[in-house]
Design a protein around this nucleic acid. Sequence first.
DNA 1: TTTAATTTTTAGACATGTCTAAAAAAATAT
DNA 2: ATATTTTTTTAGACATGTCTAAAAATTAAA
Lengths: 218, 218
Amino acid sequence: MFTLSEENYLKAIYHLELSSDKGISTNAIAEQLTTKASSVTDMIKKLSEKKVVVYKKYKGVTLTNTGKKIASNIVRKHRLWEVFLVEKLNFSWDEVHDVAEQLEHIKSPKLINQLDALLGFPTHDPHGDPIPDEDGNLKTIEKSLLSTLQKNESGICVGVDDSSSEFLQFLDKKGIILGKKITVLEKEDFDNSFAIQIDDKKLSISNKIANNLYIRKI
Amino acid sequence: MFTLSEENYLKAIYHLELSSDKGISTNAIAEQLTTKASSVTDMIKKLSEKKVVVYKKYKGVTLTNTGKKIASNIVRKHRLWEVFLVEKLNFSWDEVHDVAEQLEHIKSPKLINQLDALLGFPTHDPHGDPIPDEDGNLKTIEKSLLSTLQKNESGICVGVDDSSSEFLQFLDKKGIILGKKITVLEKEDFDNSFAIQIDDKKLSISNKIANNLYIRKI
DNA sequence: TTTAATTTTTAGACATGTCTAAAAAAATAT
DNA sequence: ATATTTTTTTAGACATGTCTAAAAATTAAA
Ligand SMILES: [Mn+2]
Ligand SMILES: [Mn+2]
Ligand SMILES: [Mn+2]
Ligand SMILES: [Mn+2]
């Protein structure tokens, strides 16, 4: 079995591999886990011995199939627990991450299967991120950044890129919630801000916001 | 905060204190946690520095009020999670303990409060053990061992003393479930076994069983 | 293509929690 | 009261996971 620390390394590498085709660098992992490169090297050697990563000195690291499976299972647990917290325990979407970071390490296949069933086999977590199935497959939906919409185009809000507590609370304040229809009324050239409409409400959002919100075009 | 290991020590001492008025011995703790006495001494020193136990060399250890509160909170979490697993995730009562051992260390007051509410503020876990409230108070009900019943007396099954998986599965097989009414039909002198009635079923149980089953006399 | 900057690895240290073996204290027996 | 047994503590070791500082390799610049 794998320790809590080993699991966190595998998960970090998994996330980094999703947005990179090369081997994952020691430094990138260190940054992701807010630890030091030297610690990463040590751990990578251990994971390599356990055959969950392929490692060649100075060349970065990649997950093996086994490693990928373990990592995606942790992500699966993380996201299922997030759904549970929101759907069953009245957490808001900005409160769930830290608790899920703990719960993702609980070891019990039955627990996860039953939780999945209790929640109605959800495919996405409260932030719009896909929940891997037991084999690690994830249902990707075609989503675009809100910033790619043209004037008078609309989309359904389906996810966030930055899911920090601050950003999520900001969205709450603005009334921006997953599932809502957003229409671009105006794109301002001078600062790339957007005038948008949600329900009957018109509001202005900065370019930074528009670059962190995913929508499904309609 | 307290590490997983520290929490397990506090919980062990808490359980041992419930059935002892003296200070808890190093050896007793070591046995409870299946570790070595020397390790216990080391840990006790640390817990003593943190003011959660009172320790005097060679004199055993007792929980301070702070220590008691922390320990009872862990027990609270353990038992609430056990209820959750049985009530919401279709676990049977012999499957919950090991998972609860992991879940009891999750840190999130909101999680526990909401879980408590979701479960309808239960007072007892699936094994009939009381769930401490937030201040550590536990609702004790007057319960007796089945073996103390006389011929023709009856009781409601309210708990088990031994809650090992094997014993619980044995009870399942016999149809003995918490909440059932049990009537003693006969006490056999030569082996202290009991002939009992549950629902319409008559069955014979050994003295060992009768000494591990709690009932509320009616 | 040599030099400089950056990244990665190694060497050595430290904290945590555990262990075995030996010493010290307490409890029990003679 | 002294000797023996049991319990508890100490001393020293080890595994895990982390760190800093220095060395080595790679990459970028001149
Ligand atoms: Mn999360
Ligand atoms: Mn999420
Ligand atoms: Mn239990
Ligand atoms: Mn229980």
